[in-house]
Design a protein around this nucleic acid. Structure first.
Lengths: 188, 188
DNA sequence: TGTATAGTGTGATCTACCTCACACCAAAGA
DNA sequence: TCTTTGGTGTGAGGTAGATCACACTATACA
């Protein structure tokens, strides 16, 4: 079951068996059902999550309007979390919700820090991960500023066709920051 | 002159004199005049930049409309760049332009990699930096989705009053993704 | 097997914001 | 000193897209 984690890490940084054993023992396995909340807005965030299977969303719910804004989706082989709350041991600003049954490997902050100090190589891996996450976020900011709703929808369909198939339009709209109805309107 | 870099790094990770000497020798000093392009859209990006003083913008210019979209500002004690182009040795998608006379320390990609491998501790520093950059980007995405132009303007004034004073409204508007005129309209 | 519940399309308003256009003022450079 | 350039406010008109409302279909559940 941890084999997926190993493959995932070794895409960036090869590990000896001993090294991976050291990494693996810091993770614990959990499974969640569709609709379950892995992280709840307003609650502490004890773990960081690496998805083995399934599909999750990271979502901010406006307390006044109850409108949902989706910051990220995650599926197999992705990390997902309210990283800020996790990393600063504060309460979650977002919820992380299962859109399908989901299996994860969990990493507590203490274990994360133990990994970082006990095995400097792992910092290389996470630096790489976070850097690409940052660049993706920057592209999304640019896309929000430069592109129309329709264009952003088409970009999403082109870049993540699998996501678009697994998710209802309501969820895609909440990710794109547009009204659900807009995605059905005649294309200009 | 490198003292600012040392202070900057040591906010996150203390260094011995030897360690810092090793770090410092990978950087070279440069200065630029207001209006100079440190990075040019379409050109290679040989360096990463740590600002000692001054003010820069990272900007995407739409080739068709010539409209500017500002991804980031940077001032003293910040890093700024088209990181993707830098890191992948591809051509810049953005330009980096001086809005004031600016002094920087430059780090080539080879030197960056030499630092990372020669001194694993430095990965810790960059991981920390990039993580906070990622979280800031995520907050900006959320703000673009949830908040009106006026609200985003007020958030900016509240969070970065110094920036707002040093910059014309045209630049702030290009950062917020709104028309310049909107920032002058009666506040709702 | 029937009844909720989720997902989708479509029409009719409404509005925040863009665009264009122009006037005014301040700072910069010849 | 004059002239250019950069920055700002304000009006009028246009539009992408939000919002509200409803009908239709498919899936889940008792």
């Amino acid at each position: 079951m941890h084999i997926k984690l190993r493959e995932h890490i070794e895409k960036i940084m090869p590990l000896t068996d001993d090294e991976f054993a050291f990494v693996a023992k810091h993770f614990i396995y959990k499974k969640f059902k569709k609709h379950q909340f892995m992280v709840q807005q307003g609650e502490p965030v004890p773990y960081n999550y690496f998805l083995l299977s399934g599909l999750t969303k990271l979502v901010y719910t406006d307390p006044d309007t109850d409108k949902e804004y989706i910051l990220a989706f995650a599926m197999e082989d992705w990390w997902d979390n309210d990283f800020q709350a996790y990393y600063t041991k504060t309460r979650a600003s977002f919820s992380m919700v299962c859109l399908e049954d989901t299996q994860v490997l969990c990493l507590s902050l203490d274990d994360f820090n133990a990994l970082r100090t006990g095995m400097p190589k792992i910092e290389h891996f996470f630096l790489e991960k976070v850097m690409w996450g940052f660049l993706a976020a920057q592209r999304r900011i640019l896309s929000l500023m430069t592109s129309s709703a329709q264009e952003r929808y088409e970009q999403l369909l082109a870049q993540h066709p699998s996501l678009a198939q697994r998710l209802p339009k309501t969820q895609l709209a909440a990710y794109l920051g547009v009204a659900r109805e807009t995605l059905s309107r005649p294309n200009v």
